[in-house]
Amino acid sequence: MTARIPVIKTPKVYVGGAFIRSESGRTSPVYDSGGQFVANVPQCTRKDLRNAVEAAAKAGPGWSARTPYNRGQIVYRLAEMLEARADEMTSVLRQFSPAWTSAAEREVSEAVDRLVHYAGWADKYEQILGSANPVAAPFFNFTLTEPVGVIGIIASDASPLLGLITQAAAAIVSGNTIVALASEATPYPAITLGEMLATSDLPGGVVNILTGYRKELIPTFATHTHIRGIDAVATGDDATSLRRGAADSVKRVKVRQPDIDWSAESNESVYEIRNFVEFKTVWHPIGA
Protein backbone atom coordinates (compact mmCIF):
# COMPACT_ATOMS: atom_id res chain seq x y z
CA MET A 1 0.00 0.00 0.00
CA THR A 2 1.38 3.38 -0.94
CA ALA A 3 1.63 6.09 1.70
CA ARG A 4 -1.19 8.62 1.56
CA ILE A 5 -0.44 12.15 0.52
CA PRO A 6 -1.29 14.31 3.52
CA VAL A 7 -4.46 16.40 3.07
CA ILE A 8 -3.83 19.73 4.72
CA LYS A 9 -6.66 22.17 5.15
CA THR A 10 -6.35 25.67 3.72
CA PRO A 11 -8.16 27.82 6.28
CA LYS A 12 -10.39 30.46 4.74
CA VAL A 13 -12.38 33.34 6.13
CA TYR A 14 -16.18 33.29 6.33
CA VAL A 15 -17.70 36.26 4.47
CA GLY A 16 -21.21 36.61 3.04
CA GLY A 17 -21.90 32.94 3.80
CA ALA A 18 -18.96 31.75 1.68
CA PHE A 19 -15.41 30.70 2.45
CA ILE A 20 -12.93 32.92 0.71
CA ARG A 21 -9.23 33.70 0.58
CA SER A 22 -7.98 37.25 0.92
CA GLU A 23 -8.35 39.15 -2.34
CA SER A 24 -4.64 39.89 -2.07
CA GLY A 25 -3.71 36.23 -1.87
CA ARG A 26 -1.66 37.09 1.23
CA THR A 27 -1.45 34.59 4.06
CA SER A 28 0.42 34.36 7.32
CA PRO A 29 1.56 31.15 8.99
CA VAL A 30 0.13 29.98 12.30
CA TYR A 31 2.01 27.66 14.62
CA ASP A 32 0.75 25.45 17.39
CA SER A 33 1.90 25.91 20.97
CA GLY A 34 4.85 23.60 20.33
CA GLY A 35 6.05 25.82 17.48
CA GLN A 36 4.95 23.40 14.74
CA PHE A 37 3.60 24.93 11.55
CA VAL A 38 -0.15 24.31 11.25
CA ALA A 39 -1.45 26.29 8.30
CA ASN A 40 -1.42 29.57 6.42
CA VAL A 41 -4.39 31.75 7.37
CA PRO A 42 -5.62 34.58 5.14
CA GLN A 43 -4.07 37.95 5.90
CA CYS A 44 -7.07 40.08 5.02
CA THR A 45 -6.70 43.55 3.56
CA ARG A 46 -8.68 46.77 3.82
CA LYS A 47 -10.37 45.77 0.57
CA ASP A 48 -11.44 42.46 2.15
CA LEU A 49 -12.85 44.45 5.06
CA ARG A 50 -14.82 46.72 2.74
CA ASN A 51 -16.20 43.68 0.90
CA ALA A 52 -17.22 42.11 4.21
CA VAL A 53 -18.98 45.32 5.26
CA GLU A 54 -20.88 45.22 1.98
CA ALA A 55 -21.92 41.61 2.66
CA ALA A 56 -23.02 42.55 6.19
CA ALA A 57 -24.98 45.58 4.94
CA LYS A 58 -26.73 43.44 2.36
CA ALA A 59 -27.75 40.85 4.97
CA GLY A 60 -29.00 43.51 7.43
CA PRO A 61 -32.53 44.26 6.19
CA GLY A 62 -33.50 40.57 5.91
CA TRP A 63 -32.02 39.67 9.28
CA SER A 64 -33.61 42.57 11.16
CA ALA A 65 -36.98 41.94 9.48
CA ARG A 66 -37.17 38.43 10.91
CA THR A 67 -39.29 38.07 14.01
CA PRO A 68 -37.38 38.33 17.27
CA TYR A 69 -38.57 34.81 18.08
CA ASN A 70 -37.03 33.50 14.86
CA ARG A 71 -33.71 35.25 15.58
CA GLY A 72 -33.77 33.59 18.98
CA GLN A 73 -34.31 30.20 17.39
CA ILE A 74 -31.41 30.73 15.00
CA VAL A 75 -29.00 31.87 17.73
CA TYR A 76 -30.08 28.86 19.79
CA ARG A 77 -29.31 26.68 16.79
CA LEU A 78 -25.77 28.12 16.80
CA ALA A 79 -25.45 26.89 20.36
CA GLU A 80 -26.58 23.45 19.21
CA MET A 81 -23.98 23.42 16.42
CA LEU A 82 -21.17 24.42 18.78
CA GLU A 83 -22.27 21.89 21.40
CA ALA A 84 -22.37 19.12 18.79
CA ARG A 85 -18.82 19.97 17.68
CA ALA A 86 -17.47 20.86 21.11
CA ASP A 87 -14.71 18.26 20.93
CA GLU A 88 -13.38 19.69 17.68
CA MET A 89 -13.39 23.25 19.05
CA THR A 90 -11.79 22.12 22.32
CA SER A 91 -8.93 20.44 20.48
CA VAL A 92 -8.41 23.53 18.31
CA LEU A 93 -8.09 25.70 21.42
CA ARG A 94 -5.72 23.21 23.06
CA GLN A 95 -3.55 23.07 19.96
CA PHE A 96 -2.65 26.73 20.09
CA SER A 97 -1.90 27.49 23.69
CA PRO A 98 -0.55 25.38 26.54
CA ALA A 99 -2.63 27.54 28.87
CA TRP A 100 -5.72 26.12 27.23
CA THR A 101 -5.03 22.50 28.17
CA SER A 102 -7.31 22.60 31.17
CA ALA A 103 -9.41 25.65 30.25
CA ALA A 104 -10.38 24.77 26.68
CA GLU A 105 -13.34 22.62 27.65
CA ARG A 106 -14.68 25.36 29.91
CA GLU A 107 -14.16 28.05 27.23
CA VAL A 108 -16.26 26.02 24.78
CA SER A 109 -19.06 25.12 27.19
CA GLU A 110 -19.29 28.74 28.37
CA ALA A 111 -19.47 29.87 24.74
CA VAL A 112 -22.39 27.49 24.17
CA ASP A 113 -24.12 28.76 27.32
CA ARG A 114 -23.59 32.35 26.25
CA LEU A 115 -25.30 31.72 22.92
CA VAL A 116 -28.22 30.13 24.76
CA HIS A 117 -28.38 33.15 27.07
CA TYR A 118 -28.58 35.68 24.23
CA ALA A 119 -30.95 33.47 22.22
CA GLY A 120 -33.31 33.74 25.17
CA TRP A 121 -33.19 37.55 25.13
CA ALA A 122 -34.22 37.78 21.47
CA ASP A 123 -37.94 38.20 22.12
CA LYS A 124 -37.61 39.74 25.58
CA TYR A 125 -35.13 42.63 25.49
CA GLU A 126 -37.64 44.93 23.76
CA GLN A 127 -39.89 44.71 26.81
CA ILE A 128 -37.02 45.80 29.07
CA LEU A 129 -35.48 48.48 26.84
CA GLY A 130 -38.60 49.95 25.20
CA SER A 131 -41.29 51.93 26.99
CA ALA A 132 -44.62 53.72 26.89
CA ASN A 133 -43.84 57.26 28.00
CA PRO A 134 -46.07 59.33 30.31
CA VAL A 135 -45.98 62.69 28.51
CA ALA A 136 -47.87 65.65 29.98
CA ALA A 137 -50.16 66.19 26.99
CA PRO A 138 -52.82 64.17 25.14
CA PHE A 139 -50.41 62.03 23.08
CA PHE A 140 -49.73 58.33 22.83
CA ASN A 141 -45.94 58.21 23.09
CA PHE A 142 -43.85 55.07 22.92
CA THR A 143 -40.22 54.09 22.42
CA LEU A 144 -39.01 51.01 20.56
CA THR A 145 -35.55 49.67 19.77
CA GLU A 146 -34.06 49.02 16.37
CA PRO A 147 -30.70 47.57 15.36
CA VAL A 148 -27.94 50.09 14.61
CA GLY A 149 -26.76 48.27 11.45
CA VAL A 150 -23.32 46.89 10.69
CA ILE A 151 -21.16 46.43 13.79
CA GLY A 152 -17.38 46.00 13.63
CA ILE A 153 -15.91 43.66 16.21
CA ILE A 154 -12.24 43.49 17.22
CA ALA A 155 -11.89 40.22 19.10
CA SER A 156 -9.95 39.31 22.22
CA ASP A 157 -6.57 37.55 22.11
CA ALA A 158 -6.98 36.18 25.61
CA SER A 159 -10.32 34.53 24.84
CA PRO A 160 -10.44 33.91 21.09
CA LEU A 161 -13.74 32.00 21.25
CA LEU A 162 -15.81 33.06 24.29
CA GLY A 163 -14.94 36.74 23.84
CA LEU A 164 -15.85 36.74 20.17
CA ILE A 165 -19.07 34.79 20.80
CA THR A 166 -20.13 37.22 23.52
CA GLN A 167 -19.57 40.28 21.34
CA ALA A 168 -21.21 38.63 18.32
CA ALA A 169 -24.27 37.20 20.07
CA ALA A 170 -25.15 40.44 21.88
CA ALA A 171 -24.91 42.35 18.57
CA ILE A 172 -26.80 40.02 16.22
CA VAL A 173 -29.67 39.07 18.51
CA SER A 174 -31.23 42.53 18.04
CA GLY A 175 -30.90 42.37 14.23
CA ASN A 176 -27.45 43.88 13.68
CA THR A 177 -24.99 42.20 11.33
CA ILE A 178 -21.28 42.02 12.11
CA VAL A 179 -17.82 42.06 10.63
CA ALA A 180 -15.39 40.59 13.14
CA LEU A 181 -11.62 40.66 13.13
CA ALA A 182 -10.48 37.42 14.76
CA SER A 183 -7.80 37.34 17.42
CA GLU A 184 -4.51 38.15 15.71
CA ALA A 185 -2.55 35.89 18.06
CA THR A 186 -4.92 32.91 17.84
CA PRO A 187 -7.07 33.18 14.71
CA TYR A 188 -7.75 29.49 14.20
CA PRO A 189 -10.70 29.08 16.63
CA ALA A 190 -12.55 31.87 14.78
CA ILE A 191 -11.94 30.09 11.47
CA THR A 192 -13.34 26.89 12.96
CA LEU A 193 -16.31 28.90 14.30
CA GLY A 194 -16.97 30.17 10.75
CA GLU A 195 -17.15 26.58 9.54
CA MET A 196 -19.70 25.81 12.26
CA LEU A 197 -21.78 28.92 11.47
CA ALA A 198 -21.98 27.81 7.85
CA THR A 199 -23.80 24.65 8.94
CA SER A 200 -26.27 26.56 11.14
CA ASP A 201 -29.44 28.38 10.10
CA LEU A 202 -27.78 31.80 10.26
CA PRO A 203 -28.28 33.59 6.91
CA GLY A 204 -25.05 34.32 5.04
CA GLY A 205 -23.62 37.77 5.72
CA VAL A 206 -25.02 38.17 9.25
CA VAL A 207 -21.69 37.13 10.76
CA ASN A 208 -18.52 37.76 8.76
CA ILE A 209 -15.15 36.79 10.19
CA LEU A 210 -11.82 38.08 8.93
CA THR A 211 -8.29 37.18 9.95
CA GLY A 212 -5.41 39.62 9.66
CA TYR A 213 -3.37 42.30 11.36
CA ARG A 214 -5.05 44.66 13.79
CA LYS A 215 -2.71 47.52 12.93
CA GLU A 216 -3.61 47.25 9.27
CA LEU A 217 -7.37 46.95 9.64
CA ILE A 218 -8.32 48.96 12.75
CA PRO A 219 -8.11 52.38 11.01
CA THR A 220 -10.55 51.19 8.32
CA PHE A 221 -12.91 49.72 10.95
CA ALA A 222 -12.88 53.15 12.59
CA THR A 223 -13.47 55.30 9.52
CA HIS A 224 -15.71 53.14 7.30
CA THR A 225 -18.98 55.09 7.25
CA HIS A 226 -21.19 52.01 6.76
CA ILE A 227 -19.93 50.48 10.00
CA ARG A 228 -22.30 52.05 12.56
CA GLY A 229 -20.83 50.66 15.77
CA ILE A 230 -17.62 49.13 17.06
CA ASP A 231 -17.10 46.65 19.87
CA ALA A 232 -13.38 46.29 20.36
CA VAL A 233 -10.93 44.74 22.75
CA ALA A 234 -8.27 47.41 22.46
CA THR A 235 -5.91 49.69 24.39
CA GLY A 236 -3.52 52.55 23.75
CA ASP A 237 -3.05 53.61 20.14
CA ASP A 238 -5.62 51.11 18.84
CA ALA A 239 -8.32 52.46 21.15
CA THR A 240 -7.42 56.06 20.30
CA SER A 241 -7.45 55.32 16.60
CA LEU A 242 -10.88 53.68 16.87
CA ARG A 243 -12.38 56.53 18.88
CA ARG A 244 -10.89 59.25 16.70
CA GLY A 245 -11.81 57.56 13.41
CA ALA A 246 -15.32 56.78 14.62
CA ALA A 247 -16.03 60.37 15.66
CA ASP A 248 -16.27 61.63 12.10
CA SER A 249 -19.11 59.30 11.11
CA VAL A 250 -20.68 59.43 14.62
CA LYS A 251 -20.42 55.71 15.27
CA ARG A 252 -20.71 54.16 18.69
CA VAL A 253 -17.56 52.69 20.16
CA LYS A 254 -17.44 50.18 22.98
CA VAL A 255 -13.85 49.60 24.06
CA ARG A 256 -13.08 46.66 26.34
CA GLN A 257 -9.88 46.01 28.27
CA PRO A 258 -7.76 42.99 27.23
CA ASP A 259 -7.87 41.56 30.79
CA ILE A 260 -11.68 41.42 30.85
CA ASP A 261 -13.01 38.26 32.50
CA TRP A 262 -15.22 36.85 29.76
CA SER A 263 -16.54 34.18 32.14
CA ALA A 264 -18.03 36.81 34.45
CA GLU A 265 -21.78 36.97 34.82
CA SER A 266 -21.75 40.64 33.82
CA ASN A 267 -21.20 39.49 30.22
CA GLU A 268 -24.70 38.11 30.23
CA SER A 269 -26.92 41.15 30.34
CA VAL A 270 -29.62 42.95 28.41
CA TYR A 271 -27.40 46.03 28.69
CA GLU A 272 -24.88 44.34 26.38
CA ILE A 273 -27.67 44.26 23.78
CA ARG A 274 -28.42 47.91 24.53
CA ASN A 275 -24.92 48.91 23.34
CA PHE A 276 -25.99 48.52 19.72
CA VAL A 277 -29.65 49.46 19.49
CA GLU A 278 -31.19 52.76 18.45
CA PHE A 279 -34.24 54.09 20.26
CA LYS A 280 -37.12 55.33 18.17
CA THR A 281 -39.87 57.38 19.79
CA VAL A 282 -43.27 57.79 18.14
CA TRP A 283 -45.83 60.47 18.99
CA HIS A 284 -49.51 60.42 18.04
CA PRO A 285 -52.30 62.68 19.27
CA ILE A 286 -55.10 61.19 21.36
CA GLY A 287 -58.59 62.51 20.69
CA ALA A 288 -61.01 63.16 17.89
Binding site: N133, P134, V135, A136, A137, F139, N141, T143, F279, T281, W283, H284, P285
Partner: peptide, 11 residues
Amino acid sequence: NTFNKFDPASP
Protein backbone atom coordinates in the same frame (compact mmCIF):
# COMPACT_ATOMS: atom_id res chain seq x y z
CA ASN B 1 -50.18 63.57 12.65
CA THR B 2 -48.35 66.12 14.76
CA PHE B 3 -44.97 67.83 14.71
CA ASN B 4 -42.30 69.31 16.97
CA LYS B 5 -43.60 67.87 20.22
CA PHE B 6 -41.24 67.51 23.16
CA ASP B 7 -41.58 66.26 26.71
CA PRO B 8 -39.02 65.47 29.43
CA ALA B 9 -40.60 62.00 29.72
CA SER B 10 -40.10 61.32 26.01
CA PRO B 11 -36.63 60.30 24.75
